[in-house]
């Protein structure tokens, strides 16, 4: 049941999606009016002058969230093969997964206690 043919329709769909995106972007580009001007082309800053580079450093919390996401997401990935074969593994597999979840919780608890998830501080 799994063959290359099963994936071909996805290509169709991707083609349709790309087509739509291209048409709308290009269409809007040629249909709409174009006006240029130094002030007009500035970034939107609620009417005040632009100040410095927009790509300024922001709170490290966001980085932390991204890093933690990568870690926890990859731990979740481990659950997928287990979930699929869950019944075959039986009790022994379940105990193993309990240990895995335990480690997961250890890490989670550590992160929690160290304040990585405290956004109100």
């Amino acid at each position: 049941m799994n063959s290359a043919e099963n994936y071909i329709p996805i290509l169709f769909q991707a083609g349709v999606a790309i087509g739509f995106v291209l048409i709308s972007i290009l269409g809007a580009h040629y249909l709409g009016p174009r006006l240029k001007g130094t002030n007009k082309d500035k970034n939107f800053e609620c009417g005040i002058e632009n100040e410095g580079n927009a790509r300024t450093p922001f709170s490290v919390k966001y980085f932390l969230t991204a890093i933690l996401f990568v870690l926890f997401d990859i731990e979740i990935v481990f659950f997928y093969p287990y979930a699929v074969n869950f019944r075959e593994f039986g009790l022994e597999g379940f105990v193993a997964v309990l240990m895995f979840v335990g480690v997961f919780f250890l890490g989670f608890f550590y992160v929690l206690k160290r304040g990585a998830l405290d956004w109100d501080k």
Binding site: I67, L68, V70, L71, F78
Partner: peptide, 17 residues
């Protein structure tokens, strides 16, 4: 492959930090 993915993730986490 799974293990590599995990390790890669750990490396990315550490590396980004």
């Amino acid at each position: 492959v799974f293990f590599i993915m995990v390790v890669a993730a750990a490396e990315v986490a550490v590396g980004l930090a």
